[in-house]
Nucleic acid binder design. Structure first.
Lengths: 205, 205
DNA sequence: GTCTATAATGGGATAGAC
DNA sequence: GTCTATCCCATTATAGAC
């Protein structure tokens, strides 16, 4: 059940979460520098100065947007993999990861978009942390691909590095074109995996 | 042979070209809003005000960076295709396009990077024109893929739209990782196409 | 062709009232 | 928790000297 806030007056956490959402959307569409504290405040119906009660700076604000963006995507991805149980094949895990990451990108659109687009525009301190996060994420995918290799689902001459770039580039591009009316995510993920596998798997016979 | 300038004093065109290059690099790495006229001027060793002798505004400057970025990539791509002669197969043309676009991205790094990263951050007027340019570019790729289909190099159930997204996402991601010391572009393009074709082509038998 | 000086605007952030 | 008022500085762009 929902726990009561300790603070009186209008709920701080709620405002904070709202600001984060609005910041994510604005950062993602306008970029870091072009997004002003005033613009975020206006959308929330408060003055820019009031943001500083919830966040100490613009930098802290964007940092948390990035954290949440990365966190939500990974969580979705992991959730899809874990739902398979421990006996899943490498291919099942890989396919779950593809659908999981796509789902994360679409479900947490604003945060995911900000996360994907802002890396190159961030203040140094924030950027460094996010670069490390991204490296961990790539390792996760490397692991999935190595699993495929172990189970004989990757041709010997396929470069894992390149395959990862190939599949991640495709998955992530979904942000710029996916429209739920044009087809279910599951179907798109399947098609993408089919294309991927028919390319990397050894000839059937 | 090189033609003499009509103007006296230090060559205006030269400075203009230099400013464009520096602008491309800075826009591409920092983003549109974060790039200041001062920063560009400083790199060129002049004052910010002097830029306005060569460009009427920041908007015009970024517009030309975008134009050149798009133009150089397409030119490289077309050059590779045309070098094949008129009797080339659809697959040869496709493979030439992949290598051509990759070459363009690497060869004109600063302009290509700016072109790829700035779309979402541009002033409306500039953005609209570039969105149209991108659509033309996508149609070019659709044409290449339809050629493949006509010549029986695409499985019937492969969605051309998705295949285009798949291959373009992969090609374009080269900007963020390619290192000439790690392997020739030709080899990477080949590997990418091999992965692509072994997926989309009908089973050999 | 580039400079200095400056206008006009808007940015992030803080102080202190309520 | 949010406000108003304000500081201080950076920004794009222009005017006019050289």
């Amino acid at each position: 059940m929902a726990r009561k806030q300790k603070t009186g007056s209008t709920n701080a956490n709620e405002t904070r979460e709202n600001l984060l959402k609005l910041a994510a959307r604005t950062f993602g569409t306008q970029g870091y520098s072009a997004t002003t504290m005033r613009a975020i405040a206006e959308q929330a119906g408060i003055e820019a100065a009031s943001i500083y009660y919830h966040f100490s700076s613009k930098e802290e604000l964007v940092d948390e947007v990035m954290e949440q963006g990365a966190g939500r995507i990974v969580q979705e991805l992991n959730g899809h993999i874990e739902a398979l149980g421990p006996d899943a094949t490498a291919e099942q895990r890989f396919r779950a990861a593809v659908l999981g990451q796509m789902t994360g990108l679409v479900k947490h659109g604003d945060f995911a978009l900000a996360h994907g687009r802002l890396l190159g525009q961030l203040p140094e301190a924030v950027r460094e942390r996010q670069v490390k996060r991204r490296e961990r994420h790539q390792k996760l995918w490397n692991g999935l691909l190595e699993g495929l290799r172990t189970e004989g689902r990757l041709r010997g001459d396929v470069d894992i590095h390149l395959a990862r770039i190939f599949i991640l580039g495709s998955i992530n591009s979904i942000q710029s074109w996916f429209n739920p009316r044009k087809g279910a995510l599951e179907k798109i993920a399947d098609q993408l995996c089919d294309m991927f596998f028919a390319g990397v798997s050894p000839p059937a016979s």
